[in-house]
Design a protein around this nucleic acid. Structure first.
Lengths: 142, 142
DNA sequence: TATCAAACAATAACTTTTATCGTTTACACT
DNA sequence: AGTGTAAACGATAAAAGTTATTGTTTGATA
């Protein structure tokens, strides 16, 4: 029998105080092999091949866990619904990773630089949208 | 009788080849008075006070129209579902405003600068997430 | 090995968004 | 101003995404 190659995952679970379950481990290993920016559905589809009985809810719960633990990261903060921008001034956003509130910050105030209008792969730039992820003042207190 | 103050909106509609309807106009005027980053539900709630019979579907359809026409802009591109990041390297994203596909671009390749770890309002910075909005190569052809 | 909390599957419920469809309205053209 | 037609509307069903509930199974610890 092979030496157990799953030690890093067991440690990861211990660090975060969560149990090492079969589903969790397969989920983790599967996700590690994926590329790009998969949705929960896509992860579910792939994991189902190895654990056909797995539930979509389990996938969601564990993706949440992984993201909260910092094992994986989510592509730009998800706000549940579309949001419309009402601020006409050039600005960017500060998004709180705890409460997900969005606050504006003026482009100059943020002080980024270096805009190109063409990027590798022939991508034609319209604009830069910067989300500064962090913790807002009120969440820092709590 | 007052002079019709709605000329700019009529022009806006003409430019985009859409009809000037009562609902559309109230929606536009209402949204112009809003602040922050409202969701379609929030817009609906506010517009309903002026046009109680308006349908939520109308709100959605017109928000889409406005966004497509560039009258309003949406806060960071909405991808319908949560997306998990699989690229471990420090990088940012190029998001196509036509097909909404996300492609990675290395932090160094993009060449932004000027990171602060504290922003106005006491916001504690964890990281910068840059979405470069634009048109991908394949959408440029089409 | 027995205990108990945590995790699981199944599925209902909820939220957000889109599609359908019959009716009404705006606009171009008399 | 009157009329035809396509666009827009309201109502609502359906789809998509996510979360909550519940009874059962499993993992961690004694």
């Amino acid at each position: 029998m092979m030496v157990n190659e799953s030690k890093p995952f067991r440690e990861l679970c211990r660090e975060n105080g969560i149990a090492v379950t079969h589903q969790r481990q397969v989920l983790y290993e599967t996700m590690k092999t994926m590329h790009g920016h998969p949705s929960p559905e896509e992860v579910y589809a792939k994991v189902k091949k190895k654990v056909p009985a797995i539930s979509l809810a389990t996938v969601y719960k564990n993706i949440h866990l992984f993201v909260e633990s910092g094992v994986f990261r989510e592509v730009s903060m998800h706000h549940g619904s579309v949001r419309v921008e009402m601020n006409r001034e050039p600005h960017h956003h500060m998004v709180c990773s705890k409460c997900r509130k969005i606050a504006d910050i003026g482009e100059k105030e943020l002080g980024l630089v270096a805009k190109r209008d063409r990027l590798p792969g022939g991508f034609l730039v319209e604009r830069y949208a910067v989300d500064v992820i962090g913790v807002c003042a009120s969440c820092q207190k709590a």
